[in-house]
Design a protein around this nucleic acid. Structure first.
Lengths: 120, 120
DNA sequence: TGAACACATGAACAGATATTCATATATTAA
DNA sequence: TTAATATATGAATATCTGTTCATGTGTTCA
């Protein structure tokens, strides 16, 4: 996706000293990648809505689908994304699968995000 | 994108009482949408990397491009996204445009996100 | 056992998005 | 003014993503 041979700025770096120092202190690429992947999960209204329902109560797939007025399949697909991100866990009881939150940071992150929205 | 007439679950709601109560306490749709839009900004490695450079120092577009080994145009496009999200601000000095952070929550949000990654 | 049901999942498709490329704008300096 | 340079931006394109549709899996119950 990224062309490493693409032309950069026409000239040399403008502030070489700053660039060098900042580069020195950048976190590892893998960490930045993982962080982006993590936040990508929150970048979808359906998943945000699912998480907000689970803030209130453990719930089964069918209930979530009804509540959000979406198909069972769509919800199931998104629950898989949330599950892969370790944000929700589930327990089975007969045919019914109950999902619930599996993270303590989500609410805090949402609150911070909401603060930003309020202020901007 | 969403078909409101799509078939839902085959049967009626399973736990009608819970669904009704949770629906009652859901935040407004607009708020959930805005939250998703906000987190979408963090869901890209390039933007995450830009923000991490700006955690350290105010920097001009050309320097960021060199530092991240990407084209000036790509960085400029992404800076516009960050600007629209009210996450960065800028000041002009001659031809050079210096970008810097314009939000207090970002670092806290990133730290929470990083905590999640560490624990999972 | 077989029908009904809750949920999962793969394929397909439509819409969104990130980068590139070409070019425009604005400022500086000769 | 003209050339050079820093940045911005519109269009095109390739890739990614979310939903639907069809179907598969596993459980319950008659």
């Amino acid at each position: 996706m990224k062309d490493q041979n693409a032309p950069r700025c026409d000239t040399t770096v403008i502030h070489g000293d700053i660039v060098a120092e900042v580069r020195e202190n950048m976190p590892p690429e893998e960490q930045l990648f993982n962080l982006a992947e993590f936040f990508k999960v929150f970048g979808d209204t359906t998943r945000i809505r699912i998480l907000y329902t689970l803030f209130q109560s453990e719930m089964c797939v069918c209930d979530i689908a009804h509540l959000l007025d979406m198909s069972q399949s769509a919800i199931s697909h998104q629950l898989r994304v949330l599950k892969n991100a370790k944000l929700v866990k589930f327990r089975k009881k007969g045919r019914v699968v109950y999902y619930s939150l599996d993270d303590d940071h989500v609410k805090a992150i949402f609150d911070q995000g909401y603060q930003h929205i309020l202020e901007s």
